[in-house]
Amino acid sequence: MGLLRYLLKRLVSILGTISAVLALSYVLMHYAPGSFFSSANLASAMGTLKMENAHLYASYLRMFRDRYGLNLPLWRQVLEYVWHSLSFNFGNSFQNPSVPIMVQLRTAFPISAGLAFGSIVLALIIGFPLGVVAALHRNTWLDSVLTTLSMAGQAIPSFVLAVILVFVFGVWIPGVVPVNGWGTPANAVLPIVCLATGNVGVVTRYMRGSLIEALRQDYIRTAEAKGVPYRAVVWRHAMRNSLTALVTVIGPSFAFTVVGTVWVENIFSIPGLGTLLSGAFVNDDIPLAITSVFLLCLMVMGMNLLVDLSYALMNPRIRLE
């Protein structure tokens, strides 16, 4: 199957999945007690506006009624909602009705995306050599130390690590890196470290496993038998296959990291998508909540597509299906 056809098929499936997520969220919210789009919930999400400025409140209420077509049958509402979201026309949030959601996202999205990508790059830079070292010293004390540490890195969730790091750099050794806020490059250090730790474990373990597997292959024995130096066998023959396989790890790791940014942003008070999302969920601001989920899911699916494509390009034996 051609690359183009495969790409098209994948894009259609991404559209289908994301539409299903949006529709499901909308229907769930619609059938929530009293419906999230009812006047009562709008009033609570808009805070004290009802008391302060009844006229403005009424006009916002009208705006939301029209926006979500609340007098239409449910299936029409769902279709319109999905269509609006897919065309990136997100409307306004309940809490901050005068500002379109798009404006709020414009500053938040790059922060979250930067944290996620930065931590993946850091995890590859650290995890790759650790995995190679573990594989070349397999079944020694060094290997078991590295393997155990990488398991620990995977087991401790980034939010626990984040709280611990806030404590270490806030109380024990204050003043080295900021533990709160956003704005300077130093603010990104701790969040990226937190997010990368789990993935360092993943990359290390995977690299170790696949390199050991590659070193067992017949062509490695052939290369050794014909007198290729061990160093060249490892770097030129074994590593090439391990590297291609490493790409496949990035997909799941990225999904994991995107969820992690939501946690870590909340703990380090970073004004990204994750902070926006938690504020929206806590305050019943449904349009903003579903939109943040939509964007984060889109980020994950886009990355998975990229990973699959690059894997296919790097390894012609893999047929796209």
């Binding site: 769930l28 994991f256 969820v259 909540a289 989920v293 984060l296």
Partner: peptide, 19 residues
């Protein structure tokens, strides 16, 4: 099953808990 694997389940958990 593919649907559940296509995006992080944590977000669906959040929506379900909100509901």
């Amino acid at each position: 099953v593919d649907f559940f694997f296509a995006f992080p389940a944590y977000f669906l958990d959040l929506i379900l808990v909100t509901k």
